[in-house]
């Protein structure tokens, strides 16, 4: 289904016009995807993107990390090999605070990285090619899926009517990612 993987991209230089077009495309039910060189605040609301929930796994892991740190201290200092240090109790919790805190936060930081990379689908890739190189520079791309070839003209004029400076029809491997191996149709 070559047609199912066709997309049309409208390019903008003006972030304001781009944001307005995103809102209009969402309202018109075009299922747009937006690509921007830098984050635009408020854009996610216009595109109907819900807020990121990646705080939850990270917080969970931090709490588990605290428990693990406590367990490490309890097991090594009290259970496995109790060592008398200056006649202090074997389980002297105030001396464990640093270990508990650092273990939890380190695991939290690693999880934060892992979850963020996973959610953004980031993996080392030596041949990344975006639909347009200027997306990481000064150009905003509003990408709409094309159900068939005939839709290209109507959506092209829709994009131009909503301020697109340039419109391009592309055939991509994966419409969801809309990135790799873009080729002109």
């Amino acid at each position: 289904m070559a047609e199912a993987t066709s997309i049309i991209a409208g390019y903008y230089r003006d972030p304001q016009a781009f944001s307005d077009a995103c809102a209009a495309a969402t309202a018109a039910g075009h299922k747009p995807q937006a690509f921007t060189p830098y984050p635009i605040h408020g854009l996610e609301a216009k595109l109907g993107i819900s807020r990121s929930l990646i705080g939850r796994p990270v917080l969970t892991v931090i709490l588990i990390g605290f428990a693990l740190g406590l367990f490490l201290c309890y097991f090594t200092q009290y259970q496995n090999w109790p060592l008398n240090v200056g006649g202090k109790p074997y389980f002297s919790w105030p001396t464990f605070v640093v270990v508990i805190l650092e273990t939890g936060l380190l695991l939290g930081a690693l999880t934060n990285m892992g979850v963020a990379l996973h959610m953004c689908r980031l993996l080392p890739d030596p041949h990344t090619k975006l639909i347009n190189d200027r997306i990481t520079d000064d150009t905003f791309a509003l990408v709409l899926p094309l159900a068939n070839r005939a839709e290209a003209d109507s959506k092209s004029s829709w994009l131009k009517g909503h301020g697109a400076e340039e419109v391009q029809v592309l055939c991509v491997e994966s419409p969801a990612a809309a990135v790799v191996e873009a080729a002109h149709v």
Binding site: C22, F35, T36, L43, I49, S52, I54, L130
Partner: peptide, 13 residues
């Protein structure tokens, strides 16, 4: 790592 600048990714990022 294949960063695309997708608006969805920026939210998580």
């Amino acid at each position: 790592m294949g960063w695309r600048g997708n608006a969805k990714d920026w939210v998580h990022y």
